[in-house]
Each structure stands twice: as structure tokens, then as C-alpha cells.
Design a protein around this nucleic acid. Structure first.
Lengths: 140, 140
DNA sequence: TCTTGACCCTGTAGCAGCTACAGGCCTTAG
DNA sequence: CTAAGGCCTGTAGCTGCTACAGGGTCAAGA
């Protein structure tokens, strides 16, 4: 890599902790901009790419969809965002997370109930199976 | 439907609360057995199909993957399961659910922290964006 | 008798968000 | 000279469905 500051895709991958294939995928779907290429057509990235990719990675880990991230980046790119907009997106997202937590808690309770019936012995009867086959029970 | 007890796929769908296309999909991937066909090649289901499909639906709602369900059904079909086996599968599944809950809680905390910094004003500065771009922060 | 509508059929393509090849080029070290 | 490691493009696969396209079948109504 002759360019000052130039990162190969492999280096970018290591520094951002994002898979090489995923980086190329992000480029294809327009989340990451197409970088310059060196003489041998290798991708050459700069510090701005690293920053942006890290942003994407962090947002993904926080559960934002790629579409939501595209929305955030559009705002950032256009310098057009207001705090209120971002806040709204974040709060919406928070509501969804809370809903998911509730769902999982319900699920956990239901399964614990079933497992509690379970003798754990080598018998061919099983309360879990019975419960799942029991048409009187309504799960959800 | 001339057969006694014979259900069309539409009726099965209504009674099991599973989509028609999903039923056909389950047949294709081997979760549901191929049913008899009437003279016009329509699928004809019996009470056993309804029972099995309901089992699948309930298990799905409890978050079991189709692969796990296939495993459960194999045990049931072979009358080879012991309570201990099923219990283990269930407990494994419970552990995973708990892990997911913890993940989501962490996520929620992180996002709440970010949102709390947010003024909600029309200013072009935003604590959320800053946090996501801040390379010193480690999310996950 | 014709037609309309509600069913059913098969097969394929699409969704998210990647991941994993296949088949090739380039560069450098031994 | 060759082998290893990186990079390239392009396509197919994963889960668990869903949504067609393009057709057949059947009963009831005009």
C-alpha cells in the first residue's frame, strides 16, 4: 500500500472488527462508499472509512437495522440531522427492544413451567412433550 | 372432501393457525409428512397432522428452531425419547433465552445512556451520533 | 350454459444480513 | 520456481418463511 494512511481491506477488517466479506457487502448495498483502488485494483481505505465502518458496526451491535443505519448516515452525511430526529429514532428502537425483552421473558416463564414438570428420569413419558402436544394449552 | 375427517390445507391452516404456504414449506423440508391426495391432487389431512402441526407451531412460538423441532419429532416418532433427553434440550434452550435477555438488557442500558445525553432540541449536535462515532467507546 | 369466485396446485424468487465458496490475479519470500 | 497469502468478482447458501406467477378444479348463480 503506497498511499499514506492507506488501509487494505484486510487491515480495515482487523481494525474495525468487521469481516472482509461483510465490508464488501456493505459497499454493494451502499452503506459504505466505494473506496479508491490501487494500481492492482485493490481497495484502499482511509481514516474516514474506518470511522464510518466503526459507526456501522457499533450501530449494528446496538441492534439497529441496516436500513435504520442508512437513515442515520444520510442525516449525518447531509449534516441535516437535528438531535430531535436522532432521539426519536433511538427511542423507537428502545421501545422495540423492551418489547423483545418482554417476549423473551414470557417465553422463559412458559418453558420453565414445562421443565419443572419434568422428572428428568429415563422414563418414556415427558411433561414437555405432553405440554407441546396438549391442544388445550395455548402458547401465544 | 369426501374422506371422513379429511381436512383440506385451508381448513388445516385455519385450525392450526399456520399459513398455507408455511404448511407446504414444512412438508418440503420434512417437518410435516406428505399427506394423502384426493382425486384432484389436493392434500388431505387427518387429525394426526393437525396434532403434529400444532406441536410445531407451539414449539416455534417457544423459540425452538426448526432443526430443534425436527430433533424433538424424531424422538417422538421413534418413541425413543426419554424425559431426560427432552429436558436437556429444553434447558439448553432456556440458557440461550436467558443469554438473549441479558444481551437485550445491556443494549437497552447503552441506548438509554445515549438518549439521556440527548437534548431533544433542534440543534445539529447530537450525543447519540457522537457516541456512535466515538472510537473510544466500546460497544460489545 | 357460461361465468365468476374460491379454493387448490407447482415452482420460483424475495426478505435480512451476512457467510462461504469457486476460480482467478498479484506479490513476495524461500 | 514455487508456494503462500493476500486480494478480486460473482454466485449460492443459510433461516423461516412469504409472495407471487401461471395454472387447474369445482360449486353456485344468472
Amino acid at each position: 500500500m503506497k498511499q499514506k494512511d492507506g488501509l487494505s481491506i484486510g487491515e480495515l477488517s482487523k481494525r474495525s472488527d468487521v469481516n472482509i466479506e461483510t465490508i464488501r457487502y456493505y459497499e454493494k448495498i451502499g452503506v459504505m462508499p466505494a473506496p479508491d483502488r490501487s494500481a492492482n485494483r485493490y481497495r484502499v481505505y482511509g481514516a474516514d472509512h474506518l470511522k464510518r465502518l466503526s459507526f456501522v458496526r457499533r450501530s449494528r451491535r446496538l441492534g439497529f437495522s441496516l436500513d435504520e443505519i442508512r437513515g442515520l448516515l444520510r442525516l449525518v452525511d447531509g449534516h441535516a440531522y437535528t438531535c430531535a430526529q436522532v432521539r426519536e429514532l433511538t427511542l423507537n428502537h428502545l421501545t422495540e427492544i423492551q418489547r423483545k425483552i418482554e417476549d423473551l421473558k414470557w417465553l422463559k416463564r412458559a418453558m420453565e413451567e414445562m421443565a419443572a414438570q419434568c422428572s428428568g428420569e429415563r422414563a418414556p413419558e415427558c411433561a414437555v412433550i405432553d405440554a407441546l402436544f396438549d391442544t388445550r394449552r395455548q402458547f401465544g
